[in-house]
């Protein structure tokens, strides 16, 4: 244990933690919204993310991007990447809902059956990429280059760090507003509160569930793009570890709670880096889970509570 290294690494840890936390937060949305609406933990969401990272890789390969572009070309390229990744992830999420969950729900299968179906779908998607693409990591072009915008203590804040944090927070706030203020958002909240009554009130249950998966998938696509921009590498099982952390973020913030996902994601990102700086990198995961247990002991429903249903305009 070393408080000296915590101090020495404080600013780099903070910047890295916020970057990773923003990605977790966007990733966590898929878990938290699906849980809020269906009370289902969508374990295949990590593969929705993985498909997004692969989509960005495909874009960069097809467009033969080998060097970081600049100016408007960079903005255009980022837009193309994020749109393609959102499309791919959104499609995967919707496909999962149709293939792995809806048939079970129609037959009134238990939540446990859906959970197993989720785990199966997760394996299946991973293996499809593992077998037909490659099990090795694939490196891609760092499209933002590595330009330092400013330094903060010992931290070098690069343009992609800023992009990840700003995009993450903006998307989260926008989505929270969407759910809290629109008619469509009211539908989601109604289903989360009481699916049967919501149906009686004229809410189309299947459509709301489909949209919930779609939104989770789209956000995972954004997270995947940011991940690729920052880490420029992907692999068939790339979603596994971040998926676990994102799910933890959702639980820590309060599962089913959109603001909770943001808070949980950022807290976990920071905890990982602070924990690693104090105790060593091998402790970054244990520290996160120890804090998770402690928080849940005090607040069993997470920091902000479980409240997709109770979100207010």
């Amino acid at each position: 244990m070393s408080l000296h290294s915590f101090v020495a690494e404080f600013w780099p840890s903070t910047v890295d933690g916020l970057v990773l936390g923003s990605i977790y937060a966007l990733f966590a949305l898929g878990y938290t919204m699906v849980y809020g609406v269906l009370k289902l933990i969508n374990f295949a969401h990590s593969e929705v993310f993985m498909v997004g990272t692969m989509a960005v890789l495909a874009v960069l390969t097809v467009l033969h991007v080998h060097t970081p572009p600049g100016g408007f070309i960079l903005v255009g390229l980022l837009l193309v990447c994020v749109l393609v990744a959102m499309a791919a992830s959104g499609f995967t999420a919707v496909l999962l809902e149709r293939v792995a969950y809806r048939p079970l729900r129609r037959r009134g299968a238990s939540r446990l059956a859906a959970l197993i179906s989720a785990i199966g779908a997760s394996f299946a998607l991973q293996e499809v990429f593992g077998i037909y693409y490659t099990r090795n990591a694939t490196e891609m072009t760092a499209i933002m280059g590595n330009s330092v915008v400013f330094t903060l203590g010992a931290a070098r804040v690069t343009s992609d760090d800023l992009l990840v944090i700003i995009t993450g927070v903006v998307m989260m706030v926008a989505l929270e507003r969407l759910v809290a203020t629109t008619k469509f958002g009211r539908g989601i909240r109604a289903v989360a509160q009481d699916p049967e009554t919501a149906t009686l009130m004229g809410v189309n249950l299947d459509r709301i569930i489909l949209y919930t998966f779609l939104i989770g998938g789209l956000m995972a696509g954004v997270a995947a793009t940011l991940f690729d921009v920052h880490y420029h590498q992907t692999r068939y099982d790339v979603g596994q570890l971040p998926g676990l952390k994102a799910f933890t973020a959702a639980v820590l913030g309060g599962i089913g709670n959109l603001r909770g996902a943001l808070v949980g994601g950022l807290v976990i990102g920071l905890l990982e880096f602070y924990g690693a700086s104090v105790f060593g990198s091998q402790w970054r995961d244990p520290v996160v889970f120890i804090v998770l247990v402690l928080v849940l002991l005090v607040r069993p429903t997470g920091i902000l509570g479980e409240s997709l249903a109770r979100a207010r305009a």
Partner: peptide, 19 residues
């Protein structure tokens, strides 16, 4: 330092090396 071989982010170790 000890890293997780399946992890994608080695930022914590990198910060330590620099520090």
């Amino acid at each position: 330092d000890h890293i997780n071989p399946n992890g994608q982010d080695y930022g914590a170790s990198v910060n330590k090396v620099i520090a």
